[in-house]
Design a protein around this nucleic acid. Structure first.
Lengths: 225, 225
DNA sequence: GCTATATTCAAGTAGTTTATCGAATACTTG
DNA sequence: CAAGTATTCGATAAACTACTTGAATATAGC
């Protein structure tokens, strides 16, 4: 009977390895970035605001829980998700958090109140208008994420290079920007900058994953801008 | 720009609330039990081998992450899952752990080596034979779990009361026992006891949840034994 | 109102773990 | 070998962990 207890304890300890690795906000953010595209330590550190050494250690934690994999490419070490199921688990976690923790909605609403007029556009009407060409859809994430996968019909206009592309964007037509998802602020920033210059810009809340879940078309590896 | 960092940090902190609550083996075990049926603190403490005070504290942690709910019923406080999605998240976690952490398979195999001949029976052939009546399927979990939901056609024979039911079990026919799932040892124990008495007993690895996922029929609230 | 029972609370302990930093080290490429 | 990238080491301070003990609270039945 004591052997049973020991068996159970060691099994649940293994399960807990995964959730322990997920129990740090910074690691969740790292994983979230890796859901979009694979990346080097340095880049991940910059995107999350961590020191390189610190980011590296967080990444080791995730790796020893077998959630991500590392591959050496020349000078860089490229990290990527170890399994598609990791993405699913992460989004299940996010979904449950959104549903059960009302604080998240509060925080989001508060944030959007500081950026007035940025309520997300409706997904269904958007889809219709993208199809008919009545709307220009732009993906404002870094180019490597666009390449890894983007909504069909979207143009690749990373936020950093927004100004370069201004003359190729229509002034009279609606422009809809999207990024990594509801908690990524790239699209918010993009819309604000575009509006300041007189464009009719709006924000799509979804990211590529949400779009894909709905069975909507995704393209990859075709960097047409 | 600093506001963006703050926003992200507080969002990911909320997500981490959930995974922090899941990061303890004992809490995972408690949740696992609550996936089968709602229960009082005292019972949960006994089943997990925790002191009542300690179990209560773990339950508070789960509750403050909104994963479970408490309801006072007379002297007892009954805990239950707060949402179906909690079960899904838990099983997603388990699934990923099984797939990625080979240690789990090792531990399980090692455990089964100490209980020879207890390899689980095949789910598909079982189903056929249950339907045709060539097999007696028994649910050896506590009665309250059977009532909350059991595989269609299974008889309620809690492990504690196994001996009481012996004379109503067939000696010439195969008996298949199941419990909470692959890491619950009730069925293992049941099969060993039955075999010691000359029954042709086998073990089904699945629990109710796995059965349900396969779209197979579940019954509830009909305590026919 | 008294008593038995179930649960929670508060406080304390001992041990572990955490995130983080800066410097040292290892590796790769030109 | 020089420059750039990543990991490791050592150390720090803080925070947190699971758990125990004993008291407090709540409820039901007598």
């Amino acid at each position: 009977m004591n052997a049973n207890r020991k068996f159970k304890d060691s099994i649940y300890e293994q399960f807990a390895r995964i959730s322990k690795a997920l129990s740090s906000p910074k690691r969740l953010e790292l994983l979230d970035l890796l859901c979009q595209a694979e990346r080097s330590v340095e880049l991940l550190a910059k995107l999350t605001g961590l020191s390189v050494a610190n980011a590296s250690q967080h990444l080791q934690v995730l790796r020893s829980a077998r959630l991500i994999e590392a591959e050496k490419q020349g000078l860089f070490v490229i990290y990527r998700l170890a399994d598609e199921q990791v993405r699913d688990l992460l989004y299940a976690l996010r979904g449950l958090a959104e549903k059960r923790l009302t604080e998240i909605e509060h925080t989001t609403r508060q944030f959007l109140e500081n950026h007035p007029g940025l309520e997300p556009v409706d997904r269904d009407t958007l889809r219709e208008r993208v199809r008919s060409g009545a709307v220009t859809l732009i993906d404002v994430r870094p180019t490597e994420e666009y390449l890894a996968g983007h909504i069909q019909g979207a143009r690749c206009i990373p936020l950093d290079e927004l100004e370069k592309h201004l003359d190729r964007l229509p002034k009279d037509q609606e422009i809809v920007a999207y990024c990594r998802g509801p908690y990524c602020v790239l699209a918010v920033e993009a819309v604000e900058r575009l509006r300041a210059r007189g464009f009719k810009a709006f924000r799509l809340e979804d990211g590529v994953y949400e779009w894909q879940l709905l069975g909507l078309p995704i393209d990859a590896e075709s960097p047409a801008a």
